[in-house]
């Protein structure tokens, strides 16, 4: 073919773009299929060949609510993820602040140690946590989940906040100190406004992680404090072979977090990589 360089470039851009679209559709297909199935009847859901055109129904969504009390589980998810995030921020903001602004020789070691606690596999401490929850009457209780979620996310939150606080110019604070402002005033009028974005995205990341947490939710909760992850897990039993209803429950459970994830990709990258990738 006799194409000029710019023509050839155009063709390659087009073909790469087309390829990207195809790959994206393949990757996204399971999610799309789940959403489509949630609008089918049970018979349509298992029809072979699969239906791509049908009359959508909303029945599944109301049945899911009736049969498994969907809103109770959704509320538990909201309470645990927001509660744990709030608690973790409450503990981590002052700590990360002081580490960033008056670091000692041991600050780096402390931060690395915090990161290393994430290396303790959850299953290694399953028995003690289970028995502690049982003996304090906190088994199947949202309170114990809040505490656990707080603790498992605390290291990540500390790191994220630390990197955000690190970026605040020190000169402003020094000027502020010269004028005799107290630590509290510093925090309230300088640091908080400047790092509001960082704190917010830290909180959002923490909410995502709590919302999707599965190990502790499945093992420590049942009917009372069950979160959405635990509810969906209960559909794995044979009685849960209702694909349309499973899809409806799953769509509802995932939609908020997926949409939310689309909007804060950048902050999530920073958070998940402890600020190492921007």
């Amino acid at each position: 073919m006799n194409l000029t360089l710019s023509q050839r470039k155009k063709v390659s851009t087009w073909s790469l773009g087309l390829l990207s679209w195809i790959v994206a559709l393949v990757i996204f297909f399971p999610i799309l299929w789940m959403v489509m199935t949630s609008f089918k009847t049970e018979l349509q859901a298992i029809s072979t060949p699969p239906l791509f055109m049908w009359e959508p129904t909303l029945e599944n969504f109301s049945v899911v609510q009736e049969r498994s009390d969907y809103f109770k589980y959704a509320m538990n998810s909201v309470i645990t993820s927001f509660g744990a995030t709030f608690l973790a921020l409450l503990i981590a903001v002052p700590a990360a602040y002081s580490m960033a602004f008056s670091p000692s020789k041991r600050t780096k070691d402390i931060l690395l140690w915090m990161l290393s606690t994430k290396m303790l596999p959850a299953v290694g401490v399953l028995m003690p946590i289970y028995l502690l929850a049982q003996s304090t009457g906190l088994l199947d209780n949202v309170f114990s989940l809040i505490i656990i979620f707080t603790m498992i996310n605390l290291p990540i939150i500390m790191w994220m906040l630390f990197t955000y606080f690190k970026e605040i110019p020190k000169d402003i604070l020094e000027a502020c100190r010269m004028d005799g402002a107290s630590t509290f005033a510093e925090l309230r009028y300088i640091v908080m406004p400047l790092s509001w974005g960082g704190i917010a995205s830290t909180g959002l990341l923490s909410i995502v992680l709590c919302w999707n947490e599965a190990f502790w939710s499945i093992n420590l909760t049942a009917a009372d404090a069950g979160t959405l992850t635990a509810l969906i897990a209960s559909y794995s039993s044979p009685e849960g072979l209702f694909w349309a209803k499973l899809s409806a429950a799953s769509t509802l459970a995932c939609a908020p977090i997926v949409v939310f994830g689309w909007f804060c990709q950048k902050q999530l990258v920073q958070g998940l990589t402890f600020g190492a990738v921007k």
């Binding site: 994206a24 990757i27 399971p30 789940m34 919302w211 599965a214 992850t229 459970a253 995932c254 939310f260």
Partner: peptide, 16 residues
């Protein structure tokens, strides 16, 4: 579309 699967709950992922 490509990054969406990351935000799906593990239990939902497995059941789909």
């Amino acid at each position: 579309m490509m990054i969406s699967p990351f935000f799906i709950m593990p239990t939902v992922n497995a059941l789909i």
